[in-house]
Amino acid sequence: MGIETLIAGMPGTVAQGIIYGIMALGIFITFKLLNFADLSVDGSFATGGAVAAMVIVSGKSWVLALVLAFVAGAAAGLITGILHTVLGIPDILAGILTQLALYSINLRIANNQPNTPISVDKYNLAVSLRYKEDALITVLIFAVIIIAIMYWFFGTELGSAIRATGTNPAMAKAQGINVNFMKALGLVISNAIVAFAGALFAQFNGNADVNMGRGAIVIGLASIIIGDVLCNAIFRKKRNFISTLSFVVFGGILYYLFIAIVLWMKMPANDMKLFTAIIVAIFLAVPYLKNKANSSFRKAAREGGKNNA
């Protein structure tokens, strides 16, 4: 296969990346703003896909499919929130429990079918791999709308309260903020956006698979971290919330672009999860190692020796 196949597939690749980016925006809320490692997203991403597929198969419009996927994701987030705040289960474990439970629930939603096909030939879909350019524009519009809403929401009194809860719960309580409510609210919004992305993902690829959420959290983190590193490199001190959010989506695009190139180079598709893990490890390690190189004991000893010589 020549490079032209890769280039011809580019709009589809970017569209898929933006869908991952939207998912990463949801994960951004828990991971970065709430300081809550929420692993329920692996489940809620697939929930969004399953709900959307069933709505579409039943002959309803894709608009309803997206709305109900959003609501189902919100409910999933609420479960994690209740497990954590009301029942006192640690954050990572609460997310894992929800994720596990959602696997069964997602199968039930999909009538116990592990894979529900939704062909663009039979149904009217929001996005499809068949119409790459249209899909690209549609997901881009969705991404812009979600970024705009997030920018607005986290600047409001309620959004600020969520951010304060994530940064310093002791301070938030002293300012009269109900931190349990804010954590649950953040989880609800986060998983709703993740499920919305799952609904787009299922339509784009023409099927909803019960395993489609596997590794979603790592892909989301990859997008956030890639975006974060680039945003810092480009904007430095001028970086603001809009650029941060935009670069989360950009991180999703870059991540999927990388995957597409690896696939184009004829790497076995089964090794993709390994590649994803390696990418995330690299992007997590680079800022740390760079920082360490700038201020290491070895360097201090060397420089100190020089000055005194």
């Binding site: 409001t156 009194e157 309260a161 951010r163 304060a164 300012q175 903020i177």
Partner: peptide, 22 residues
């Protein structure tokens, strides 16, 4: 709150005990 701005911190305190809306 360390990751928030000075004015945002003060605004959080100014709303202490009040309902926080949109």
């Amino acid at each position: 709150a360390a990751s928030m701005q000075i004015d945002e911190n003060m605004a959080l305190a100014a709303r202490r005990g009040k309902s926080r809306g949109l």
